[in-house]
Every structure is written in C-alpha cells, then in structure tokens.
Simulated scan of single mutants.
Amino acid sequence: MRVLFVTDAPAVGGSEVYMREIIPPMRAHGVHAEVAMPDVPGTADFRAQLQERGIPVHAYRTLDEVARVEREGRGFDLTVLSSWNPRGYRKYYRALRGPFVSLVHDQLMLHIPGLPQGVYRACYEWLQAGDIRGAQHVITVSEWGAGYLRRHHRMTQVHAVPNGVDTVKFRPGDPQERAALRERLGFKGFTVLNPARMSIEKNHPAVIATAWQAPELHFVLVGTGYLEPALKRAAPRNVTFLGKRHDMPDLYRAADVVLQPTIAENQSLATLEALSSGTPVVTNDIPAQRELIRMGQEGLLVRGGAPGYAAALRALAAHPDALRRMGIAARQSVLDGHTLDGNARHLATLLKELAQAELAGR
C-alpha cells in the first residue's frame, strides 16, 4: 500500500516529527509512504533527515506540483493531510485527488479557568474543524481528542491512534549512568526538567512561579520561543535555561522528575518520552494528560497552579522510594501501550482498512 503525506509546514513541528518517526516502521506492516512538503529554508534540514531515513520527499512550491506527482501514476491509495494554517485543508481538496485522511495533532482546547470554552470551540470550528470534516476520514492521536472531535465538531469519521515513542532511544539509565550524566550536565540536588517550546500554551509562567516557591529544587528548562526573554528576566537563581538541545534522552535519564504545567495538549510526546525514560511526570490535571498519567502511579496530576506544583515536587523529593516506584510504572505504561512499533502497526492497519473501505465504496 502506498500513502502520500502532505503538509504545508513552513518549519518543523510536532506533526512533522511524527511523520519522520512513524513512516519507517510502517514499512514492516505493508505501508510505504512518501512526503510532500514546502520547498522553503525552514524545512530544508528536515527534508534531508527524511531522505536519510529512506523516505521519498517531494519539495513543492505550489500544490500543482504535488498534483503532478499524483498524476505520474505512483498509485497512492490515500493522501494524509496536515496543515499549519487557518482553514488550511480546503486548498488540498481543490488541488489533489485523494481519498483524503486529515491527521489532527491540534491541541483542541485551552484549559484555562474562566475561559468560555464555547467561544474557543466556535473559533476552532471556523478556523479548522469545518475544513477538516471535508476529508473522508480523520485520525487524531488520543482517545480524548477523538471523543472531543465527535462530540463538539460532528466528526463521525474520526479514529484515534495514540502516539508511540522509541523505547530504545528513550530508556531508563542505571545508577552509574545517571550519576555520570548528572555530573556532566551539572545537575545538583533534586532536578526538575521542563522540556517545551516557550509559548503560552506550555504555561512556563507556572514553572517560574513554582521555582520561586521551591528554591531548594533545581529547575532545568529546555526549549526556545517567543517567551524566552521574559522568562529569563523573571526566573530565580535556581532555574537553568539550556535552550535548544539534541540530547533529550540523556536529559530525561538524568532528571528526577519532569514538570509539565501545560494548558493544552492532545497527546504529548514529551510526556511519553519522559515516561519511557522512567522519569515520573508532574502535570496539569487536564483530559489529555489523564490519558497518560494515573494519579500516584506514573506521576502526579495537579490542580491549583504553582502552589500545587511546588507541593507535589516537594512530596516526591521527600519520598525517593515512591519516586522510584513511579518511574518503574511509567516505563511499563509505555511498553504496554505506547511503543513506536505498536503505534506504527496500529496506524498501518487503520490506513489499510480505510483504503479498502474507499475502494469498496467506489
């Protein structure tokens, strides 16, 4: 079976990383995919990464060029779409042949106390959901997300394929390895890792406020973004900013806990990477995170903002045996339900079923 993934991404985001990771292992399950993405500087390095993994890439300036790829008789059974742009799916329906599967990584809702959720849903309906429904099928990355799209945006054709991560790359370290990593990285005392782009939905102000309330803990922030200058000005001395890093597996292994006060997720790869590394997660008590974290088992779900996060982190720092048990449960939860190969097998099976249904309906 042949599938064409098409994105309009001007740079690299979660949807693009998802394609890079999921396409190679799908080959073992009978699905061979190619990628079409814009021929712009922001995707150049990423396109080279795809090609290094043996993924055929079509760099395009207009969708007419992608349509030409379709017409050349490559025999794509499905076209899988993602878009960064408001009302961005309709251009695909006009220019390309399909049949179409919209791949939705959108965070769907901002979980902010007092936010009128009906207003936010109406905005998403106008900006994205109305267009997404134009595809024959929709895939999203969490059971919560699929249910939300059915319930609030009338997407009866939506399917959930939960994310998976590479459990060899993201693995726990033994005590000697962790000690060496912590020394190399300069981690001292109880270390709280926050890996996230510095944008409003990741709620970094709560990380900074928590650091002020727990000065005995060491907070390590990984990532960049438009909030970075303001966060650096506001941060106390127990916060370290590492910027963009390419050694995330080492950072997860070396940290004692991951803090994610996020206010918007569908299914967080950072959460899954931490869990796979045997690192418990302290996170906001929102629906998408509840799908991955059971209270007191793989981590802690927190309400109440910075005071709640500070109390949760202090509790874990004071109870290393409980922290260790959570780390073991965290790793097992990924092995049981969120491996990359399991994710690839699930997605490949679904895509083949959808293609067969489309063929039968012609």
Score class of each variant (00 low, 15 high):
Thr156Leu: 14
Thr156Tyr: 14
Val158Leu: 14
His159Lys: 01
His159Gly: 10
His159Cys: 02
His159Arg: 06
Ala160His: 11
Ala160Val: 02
Ala160Thr: 08
Ala160Pro: 00
Val161Cys: 13
Val161Trp: 00
Val161Gly: 10
Val161His: 00
Val161Met: 09
Pro162Met: 12
Pro162Phe: 00
Pro162His: 08
Asn163Glu: 15
Asn163Gly: 13
Gly164Met: 07
Gly164Tyr: 07
Gly164His: 10
Gly164Glu: 09
Gly164Leu: 05
Val165Pro: 10
Val165Ser: 06
Asp166Met: 01
Asp166Gly: 05
Thr167Ser: 06
Thr167Gln: 03
Thr167Asn: 03
Val168Asn: 13
Val168Glu: 15
Val168Thr: 15
Val168Asp: 15
Val168Gly: 15
Lys169Tyr: 09
Lys169Ile: 04
Lys169Ser: 11
Lys169Gly: 13
Lys169Val: 12
Lys169Pro: 00
Phe170Thr: 04
Phe170Gly: 07
Phe170Val: 13
Arg171Gln: 13
Arg171Asp: 02
Arg171His: 06
Arg171Gly: 04
Pro172Phe: 14
Pro172Thr: 10
Pro172Glu: 06
Pro172Trp: 14
Gly173Phe: 00
Gly173Cys: 09
Gly173Asp: 02
Gly173Pro: 01
Asp174Lys: 03
Pro175Arg: 12
Pro175Phe: 03
Pro175Ala: 11
Pro175Ile: 03
Gln176Ile: 10
Glu177Met: 05
Glu177Gly: 12
Glu177Asn: 01
Arg178His: 06
Ala179Pro: 05
Ala179Phe: 07
Ala180Met: 04
Ala180Val: 09
Ala180Asn: 05
Ala180Trp: 00
Ala180Lys: 02
Leu181Glu: 13
Leu181Phe: 04
Arg182Leu: 02
Arg182Gly: 05
Arg182Cys: 07
Glu183Lys: 09
Glu183Asp: 14
Glu183Gln: 14
Arg184Ser: 01
Arg184Ile: 05
Leu185Gly: 03
Leu185Met: 03
Gly186Glu: 07
Gly186Gln: 00
Gly186Leu: 10
Gly186Ser: 05
Phe187Gly: 02
Phe187Met: 14
Phe187Trp: 00
Phe187Gln: 07
Phe187Cys: 04
Lys188Ser: 08
Lys188Ala: 12
Lys188Gln: 12
Lys188Gly: 04
Lys188Arg: 14
